[in-house]
Design a protein around this nucleic acid. Sequence first.
DNA 1: GTAGGGTTAG
Length: 725
Amino acid sequence: MPFPFPSKKSRISLFTSAFHFIKRLISNMTMKEFKQTQSLIIRTGLGRSPLVKRRLLSCCCGRGFGDMSYARLLLDLIPTPETSLWNCLIRGHSVRGAPWAAVAVYVEMLASGVGPNSHTFPFLLKGFTRDDAVAYGDELHAHVLKFGLSSNAHVRSALLRMYAVSGAVDTARELFEKSPERDVVSWNAMISGHNRSNMFEESCRLFAAMAGESVMPTATTYVSVLSACAKMRGLECGRQIHRRLMNGNLLPDLRLQNALIEMYGQCGDLDSAWRVFRDMQTRDVISWTAVVVGFAKSGEVDRARALFDRMSERDRVSWTAMIDGYVRAGRFKEALHVFREMQAAAVRPDEFTMVSLLTACAQLGALEMGEWTRAYMERNGIKMDIAVGNALIDMYSKCAQVDNAVDIFRRMHRKDKFTWTAMISGLAVNGHGEDAIDLFSQMVGTSVRPDEVTYIGVLTACAHAGLVDEGRRFFSSMITAHGIMPNVTHYGCLVDLLGRAGRLEEAWETISNMPMRPNSAVWGALLGACRVHRNLEMAELAAKHLVELEPHDSAAYLLLCSMYASCNKSEEARKMREMIRVKGMKKEPGCSVVEMDGEVHEFVAGDRSHPRTGEIYSKLEEMIEELKRAGYVPDTTEILRGAGEEEEAASAAIYQHSEKLAVAFGLISSGSGVTIRVVKNLRICIDCHNAMKYVSKIYRREIVVRDRRRFHHFRSGSCSCKDYW
DNA sequence: GTAGGGTTAG
C-alpha cells in the first residue's frame, strides 16, 4: 500500500520518522533481512529519495553489520554521489580494518571529480596502521593543505594520530605547534603519540605544559598520562594524579581505575593497586588482567595465578599475561602448560602470545616446540611482526640453529636494535665471532643505534673468536662513538676476552682499574682463564674474591680443587674439599632439560622421577661401560666428598649428573642419528664434557649442550668449544 | 548526515 501524498512539509517529517524507523529496524538485522527491507522501501516509493538512499548506504557501511560490496552497488546506483556518500564508504572500509580500500575509494572519488570535505580525512585516517601512514601519510597531508582543510580541528587531530602511529612524533609536534588553536583532543593525541614512541617523560612534560595553557584535562588525558607513569615507573607522579582524580569529579570511571591499577602494578606498589581493584564497583577483563600482571611482575606468580583462576572472563590478553608471568618467573614448562590450557579454552592466540611462547621455547632449548609455534603462526595467519621475528631469532639461536636464525633475520623488512642485538649475540654464542662482528659493522651503517646489550654481544663475539685487539677497540668505541658507559658486565667480557687469550696480567690490570666493584662474573672469568692457562697463583686470588662475593657457592673452590688435582697437589685438593664440607657449602642443583616429541623432560642429578627411569638407568649403565671400553676415565675432581668417602662413591655420583641422565634418555627415546639437545642451568662439568665427546663418537650422535654460558656441539669425539669454556 | 583523542600483553 503506497503512502498517501501529503504536503511538502509534512512529507519531510513523514520521511524523517520513516528513516528513524528504518534505522532502528536495520541496526539488528542480517544482510538478507536488510535486502528484504530494502525491496519494501523501493516498492513503497521511498527508495527514490536521496535521503533514503543515503541512509541505506550508511547502514550498509556501519560496524558489525553490512556488506561493503553491497554498499558499493548502492553507491553505483546513485548518478552523481556527493562527498558525504563517498565518506560513508570510506568509513566502512576504515572500521573494517582495510585502510588501503578506504584510500582506493578516496582516490576514486577524486577521479570522479568530487572533492573531500572536513569529514573525509578523519574517516580515512582512523584505520591507518604504521605501514599505511608511511605509504600514504605525506601525500594525504598535502591533500589536506590543497583542499584547505588544515584549519579544521578534527582533520588536524586525525593527522596527529596518523603521524603518531607511524612513530613520526617530530612531524606530529610540528603540526601541533603550528596549529592556530590547540584543544584538549589534540593535546591528548600528542600525549598518546609520545607514549607510542616510548617517550614517556615527554608525555608528562606535555601534560604539565597543557595545564600551563589552561586546557582542562579529560579522562582520556589522565588515562594516557597514567600509562606513561606506569611505563616509566613514575610512582610519585602517578600518586599525584591519583590525588587529583580523587579531588575531582571524574571518578569512579572504569578506564581510569584500570589505568591506576596498571600504574601501581607496574611501579611495584601492589597494595595500592589492590586497593583500587578492591574498591571498584564494576570491573572488566582489563581490571583483572592489570592486577594479575601486577602480581606476576612483582614476582608473585602464584598469587597472579590464583587471581587468574578466579576470572569469570579471560581474553587473549589475560591468557598471554599469565603465560608471560610464568616466563618472567623462569617457570617455562608451566608457561607452555598455560598455553595448552588457553587452546583448550578455545581462545585464539595472537602475535603477543607467540612472543611469550617463543621466549619459553628459547629458554628451554625446546626446538621442536619452537618450530611448532612458527608453523602454528603460518597456519593461523598470525602476522610475524618485528617482535615475533626477534623472538624467533632468539629461539633459534638458543636452540643452536644459527642458520635458521640468520634466515629469519634476512627475511625481516624492518629491524630494530633488538633484531640486530639478538642476531649478533646469537652468532657470538654459537661460535661465529667474525660473522657477529661483520654484522655489527653493518648495523653501524644503518640508522639503528646499538645499546649496551648490543655491545655485550659484540664483546662476547670477540672473546669467542679470540679477537683481542678488536675487542679492546670496540670497548673504547662504545664510549667514544656511541656514548655508552661500560657497565660491570662489559668489564666481565673484557676480562674474559683477555683471559681466554692468555693475557692474564692485562686481565688482572683491567680488574684493578675498573671504576666499579667487580662482581662474581668478573672474578669467575678470570678464574676460568687461570684454569685454562694454568696459573694457580692468580687462580687462588680470584677464587678468594669470588668466595667473598658468594660465600655459599662452592663453584670457585671446586674449580680450585680440580686445579690442585691436575697440578698433583692432592693434599691441597683434599684440604679444599674438607673446607667445603665443613662450611656446609652447597652446589646449586644441576638441572638439565631435553625435548622429545615436543615434550620437555627435566632431570636433576640422581633423578628417579621420570616414568621411564628404569630404562634410563640401564641405558646409563651400558653407556658408561661402553665409554670406559673406549678409554673414558671418570674425573671426579669436581665432586664434593668427605675425607672418608671412596673414589667409587664419587664416580657413582658423577655418573648420575643431570646431563648424563638427559643424554641416556635421549638415546633411548630417539632414532639413530637424531641430534640430542640438552640445556643445562649450570656450566657443564669437566667429566660430563669429556663423557659427551665419547658418546658422540661411540653412538654416532651429535649432541648439543647449552650450558649457562655457551654452546657445546659434540661431534665425532670433539667439542666446538675446543675444551675452553 | 557524518567527524578528532585512550587503557590491558612482547
